[in-house]
Amino acid sequence: MILDALSVGLLLAGCFFFLAGTVGLLRFPDVYCRLHALTKADNLGLQLVVLGLVLRSDNPFTAGKLILIWGLALAASATIAHLVANLAQREGHSPWTR
């Protein structure tokens, strides 16, 4: 019961961060800010969703696979953010200033 409540709480919190990341992607002014929103908020969202699902998983193998997926997504997102930011900088996108 407590486990269920905790898991639902984590899943909902994860969805909130995904939503926040998506709003940031749509509303932020330049490519660097958007990357920031996507990589930070979405990774936190994914982490919370994975944690929520780990609490619901019925055996340690499923939990392990979920954590592996989370790690892979984290590494891929960091690498891709780096590539995109690198390309944007070389193409002369200057960071947005107030």
């Binding site: 892979l72 590539l83 690198n86």
Partner: peptide, 18 residues
Amino acid sequence: GPERGMLLGWFVRMLLPV
């Protein structure tokens, strides 16, 4: 190319065993 970076190489090497 100009994208040469340590991060991409690290990521790909890490990905191979996985």
